[in-house]
Design a protein around this nucleic acid. Structure first.
Lengths: 120, 120
DNA sequence: TATTCATATGAACGATTGTTCACATGAAGG
DNA sequence: CCTTCATGTGAACAATCGTTCATATGAATA
């Protein structure tokens, strides 16, 4: 009972042409979808989330964060590099230390929105 | 030159007591941090993002989504199970088919917020 | 310039993840 | 009941990820 053009489609609940058109029109491009999932992937690690919560309060050096989170300097540095590559944090050098800070307020809004969802 | 209690601390840019207190006060509990990163992990996959964009337009059966995204039914079903476990989508049975829909409007808001960040 | 200290980074490891494949479940119709 | 069709699911696989360890970089100071 399947049609010729949708042979592998389920029989009676078919995707109607207008629905398909609507979905495809509202679906962002491949690049945007990739970037979007890459962005959320960054937030999908509790170490990085904790780092960002540290930076919500204050800009900090690597050592500060490592101490606060009770983790090695190397682990924090690796994650800060990830966060920097995604432009979620920015850094500036101050003598021997490097100070990290939130890149913009978007970061906080995204995390707040997520937190709102999990705490309900 | 390091103090006794913070032996592995950097020397002159130290975490001050009040900053530490402030950060720790604003840092959510371990469970909330875990849940939050788990939530973002769900969004950190372009297949799941695309499924959610499908459901933005319409509730749909598994087969519909598989057809629209040009993926196997099994792959979609696995991911829908993930989305359902996280309460991001809901399902109801209609005869032989199972219809999936967004669980609530939070989902769309979180994705919109992320999309706003990547497209700038 | 030799040393020290803060940070960065490459390699390697175990752990987790997404898809595929094969098959199970469960509802409808003959 | 037996078949068909839509969906669910366990096992297995490659691929990706986060941490650790060792070491490199680079700035300050003796």
């Amino acid at each position: 009972m399947s049609t010729d053009k949708e042979a592998y489609q389920c029989d009676y609940i078919c995707v109607h042409e207008d629905v398909v058109a609507h979905v495809k029109a509202n679906m962002p491009g491949e690049d945007a979808l990739f970037d979007l999932s890459e962005l959320f992937k960054i937030f999908g690690d509790s170490t990085r989330i904790r780092i960002l919560y540290c930076l919500f309060a204050n800009e900090m050096c690597v050592c500060d964060i490592a101490t606060l989170l009770n983790m090695t300097q190397s682990a924090i540095s690796h994650q800060l590099a990830v966060l920097k590559r995604s432009k979620l944090v920015a850094s500036r050098r101050d003598g021997k230390t490097v100070i990290y800070a939130l890149a913009d307020d978007h970061v906080r809004r995204i995390i707040d929105q997520g937190m709102e969802h999990v705490s309900e």
